[in-house]
């Protein structure tokens, strides 16, 4: 696994840079300005991928936690532990860029929009998970406790999202639906998909490197570690 992660990491990193460069070029330079929102809509190229990744990473985390709880597969726990900070960073980016998009569009830095609120609660879930991991010092104990928390969280996310949506429609009968675009022009959609790909690859690359770090930390007493080259780690 350690070797596999090492072999995959540069591929993910390269793909990430490639799609990032192409996506940014197409999104910032080639794509036309939106006729309603002008150029401010270009924030979408980081906001939407970050929001998508914030959920994707949580699902990865919860799935591997469940696998760890059921089959006691150690590597699944390592994946969950490595994912949490990356997911939290994506969530924070989604929130911040959402705020910077909201200011010119809605005239305010923050509105209690259903999606923004859910995203904020998701950030709290990530932070709680990381805090629990940090607080429990024995590795076995913290792994299983954190896994239970992640699974409980993923069961709750749909309920939280549903309740927030419901609460939102109650308090704001006329929701501002500027962000709900029925369809996007292909010249705008292509860079968006590229950016989603770039963020996905960024996550995978980061995950692979973190996996190697965590495996080394946990297995530092294993004999194979002594056979590695300290400079390259291979």
């Amino acid at each position: 696994m350690y070797r596999l992660a090492g072999r995959l990491a540069p591929w993910f990193g390269g793909l990430c840079l490639l799609s990032l460069a192409l996506g940014l070029y197409l999104g910032l330079v080639v794509a036309p300005a939106d006729y309603e929102q002008g150029d401010s809509y270009r924030i979408i190229y980081i906001h939407v991928p970050a929001a998508w990744m914030s959920m994707f990473v949580y699902v990865v985390m919860a799935t591997s936690s469940a696998i760890f709880l059921i089959w006691r597969l150690k590597i699944a726990d390592v994946v969950a532990e490595a994912s949490a900070p990356i997911g939290a960073a994506f969530t924070a980016v989604a929130l911040l860029t959402g705020s910077f998009w909201g200011k010119p569009m809605w005239g305010t830095w923050w509105i209690w929009d259903a999606r923004l609120t859910s995203e904020l609660l998701l950030l709290f879930l990530y932070l709680g998970y990381m805090a629990l991991r940090g607080a429990l010092d024995t590795p076995q104990g913290s792994a299983r406790a954190a896994a239970i928390l992640a699974v409980v969280g993923v069961v709750n996310i749909p309920i939280i999202h549903f309740s927030v949506e419901w609460w939102n429609t109650l308090h704001q009968p006329a929701t501002i639906s500027k962000l709900d675009k029925p369809s996007m022009h292909i010249s705008m959609l292509r860079p968006l998909l590229l950016m989603v790909l770039a963020f996905q690859m960024l996550y995978f690359h980061n995950l692979m490197v973190r996996l190697r770090t965590l495996i080394l930390t946990r297995e530092s007493r294993a004999s194979w570690v002594a056979e590695l080259n300290p400079e390259t780690g291979n």
Partner: peptide, 15 residues
């Protein structure tokens, strides 16, 4: 820590 873990999960009940 308890509040940090549990409060986000209680949002639906509160709403």
């Amino acid at each position: 820590l308890l509040s940090l873990l549990v409060l986000p999960l209680t949002v639906p009940v509160l709403i």
